[in-house]
Nucleic acid binder design. Structure first.
Length: 596
RNA sequence: GCAGACGUAGUUCAACUGGAUAGAAUAUCGGAUUUCGGCUCCGAGGGUUGAGGGUUCGAAUCCUUCCGUCUGUACCA
């Protein structure tokens, strides 16, 4: 039991003895004290005035008096209005630090026996990934890692949209204009090659429309009748009939795309335990429609189409199967939800998908719950906001998308440029330098995209994202490298790092206890970030930790400290901070260097 | 039209879920350092939390009415 728990227990006892009131422990909580006031933890008494039958100040004072005499950790207290600020005894901080310092499982909570699937990325195979996908992938990866750290067993899944009219468009264009071009012959990454033909399709399609309209057709008709579109539709039919030639081309082009994606994923540092392909799942879900009809969850209209009535839940009636018996989007999603459960017996299922699909997932989850699925309550849509550019909205058709590969390349190049300018890499081999640039460039990018609350729409500012100062990834990476330098020196001169070496320490500076307080908060933050599916919570924490460390570093000497206990303690504190930063950054997918 | 999300220093974001004088970063201005790393640290200015009303001891947060921005509302995926 650490002293926070003993303080809470003390408050509970104080209510019992001073006010004859029983308050469940869950209702009591401590907040960190604002820095303008003296103390480390604050208890807010307002909510408990009914139990105390006294005014706020009197209640707080009575509680404070009780705590000071009965709880060892509480050295002193002060009362401001209804806020009881508690000053923690120095020895308690040192005790707490020893506890944190000796933990063998830093940043890993015990298993909770639950299994969760996190589906993210989910690309289309007709074009390369862009900035929006970066947010999706970084979020998905990080949330999966956070869930793992907070005790879940995690399955990372990718559902690839590898079929449909958009893929056929790329294929049709390739047939017309491809001249047997391949990634090898063109020097293009496979996904970029497919994307090139998707764009070509669009421009030729538009030209045909224009021609038809000049020939007298309405815009609407021209869109429907353009030969290229008809060809793509015909190709989709052939694909569904398993036409060998079409399937052959489809396999060939998708193969190129997967090679391209593999390279992109590798650089992004994300991975998957399972990959689902829509070409395998798009026919699923029809049996669920039958099930829903027999359970009375769905109903049939005169033309044979099947619907679900969600008006009681505040939504509309929603189609789940067309009149001709063919599937719609949500039909296969129902099927895939069941498939995921059959394959992995998951308790929870997280979908990392943009917020333009809020309505869709609302409907899907309500249906699965109505059908009584055991995993129904565990369905969660991690809905994230769009990424805007300073120039305005991203639009693929207008060519204002930011390509993921290009952006990553640019970030790494900028990191290289910055680092060379600062000239801190003497002694690095070429390979080490390259590795460092990669770490810094990707760290800057990931941190920039993850530090914002996922739910919120965010602005991507290219200039600001590659900054190395302020609330950035490289600032935190720098802090780690700096501590690593200290640890190297400590080892060299043989500083004793065992907890015993500072056993009799009794005086701490304020920045030291503040650091301990932060270090102790690590696992709570992991838990919070996992529960809210928000890597931003952890990112913010790591920034605060790095800042607090830098303050400590600026204020107190380490190797110039004469007292060997203090010196050992400060190096140990540095070590613990480095470990925490390293582990925390890994949970948001960022690596930290030993030197930079 | 209907539904939902959002609106916080010049800018980009926080605010531990209703708590204290709304905090960081950045930019601007001023300062520090015989130290183990000047990508560091300290300080200053900068706010009617879109507007009004309500609930509460207490509201950026909850309710309500406006205003603004965005998304969704396909027998598309």
């Amino acid at each position: 039991m650490n002293f926070q728990d003993s303080i809470l227990k003390g408050i509970q006892d104080a209510f019992a003895s001073s006010f004859q009131a029983t308050i469940p422990l869950e209702q009591l909580s401590l907040a960190p004290t604002k820095k303008e006031f003296e103390g480390s933890y604050t208890f807010v008494v307002f909510p408990f005035l009914k139990q105390s039958q006294l005014g706020p100040e009197a209640t707080a004072t009575q509680l404070g008096t009780y705590l000071k005499t009965n709880v060892a950790a509480v050295k002193d207290f002060n009362v401001v209005k209804g806020f009881l600020n508690l000053v923690v005894a120095q020895e308690e901080w040192i005790q707490l630090f020893k506890q944190v310092y000796s933990s063998a499982t830093l940043g890993q909570l015990p298993s909770n026996g639950q299994k969760v699937m996190v589906e993210y990325s989910s690309p289309n195979t007709n074009k390369p990934l862009h900035l929006g996908h970066l947010r999706n992938n970084f979020l998905g990866y990080s949330v999966a890692e956070l869930l793992k750290a907070s005790g879940y067993e995690v399955v990372k899944a990718n559902l690839v949209n590898d079929r449909g009219i958009h893929i056929c468009k790329s294929m049709v264009a390739y047939e017309h204009f491809g001249n047997e071009e391949t990634p090898a012959s063109s020097g293009l990454k496979g996904d970029h090659l497919a994307g090139k033909y998707y764009v070509l399709f669009d421009s030729h399609y538009k030209a045909q429309q224009k021609g038809l309209m000049e020939g007298g057709q309405s815009e609407e008709d021209a869109k429907k009748n353009a030969p290229l579109l008809l060809e793509a539709q015909e190709m989709l039919r052939k694909w569904e009939d398993q036409d060998p030639e079409v399937i052959g081309l489809w396999n060939k082009m998708n193969g190129w795309v997967y090679e391209g994606f593999a390279a992109t994923y590798k650089r992004m540092g994300v991975d998957f335990d399972v990959t689902y392909y829509e070409s395998n799942t798009y026919l699923l879900g029809k049996d669920i429609v039958e099930e829903g009809l027999s359970k009375g969850v769905f109903f049939k209209k005169e033309n044979g189409s099947v619907w679900v009535d969600l008006t009681e839940e505040g939504l509309d009636e929603k189609l789940v199967l067309r009149g001709d018996g063919t599937s719609v989007y949500i039909t296969q999603d129902m099927g895939t939800a069941d498939l995921k459960y059959q394959d992995h017996q998951i308790n929870k299922s997280v979908y990392v998908v943009g917020n333009e699909q809020d309505y869709h997932f609302d409907v899907l989850f309500k249906i699965m719950r109505k059908l009584g699925r055991s995993y129904g309550p565990g369905l969660y849509h991690l809905s994230y906001g769009m990424v805007d550019l300073p120039t305005g909205k991203m639009k693929s058709r207008e060519g204002t998308v930011v390509d993921a590969d290009e952006l990553m390349e640019e970030m790494v190049a900028t990191a290289a440029h910055h680092t060379k300018e600062l000239g801190k890499i003497e002694g690095f081999t070429e390979a080490q330098a390259t590795e460092l640039y990669e770490m810094l460039g990707m760290g800057a990018l990931k941190y920039f995209l993850l530090k914002v609350d996922p739910k919120k729409r965010m602005l991507f500012n290219p200039q600001e994202s590659i900054e190395f100062q302020g609330n950035t990834g490289p600032f935190i990476q720098y802090s780690h490298a700096r501590i690593a330098a200290i640890l190297r020196k400590a080892e060299q001169i043989g500083v004793n790092l065992s907890a015993d070496s500072f056993a009799n320490l009794s005086e701490l500076a304020e920045t030291e206890s503040a650091l301990i307080q932060l270090l102790n908060d690590f696992e709570r933050k992991i838990k919070m970030a996992a529960e809210e599916y928000s890597p931003a919570i952890l990112a913010q924490y790591l920034f605060d930790l790095a800042k607090e460390y830098n303050r400590f570093y600026a204020e107190l000497p380490i190797f110039h400290e004469k007292d060997s206990q203090l010196q050992s303690f400060r190096v140990a504190l540095s070590l613990q901070t480095a470990k925490t930063i390293k582990r925390g950054m890994s949970l948001i997918g960022i690596q930290v260097p030993e030197r930079m």
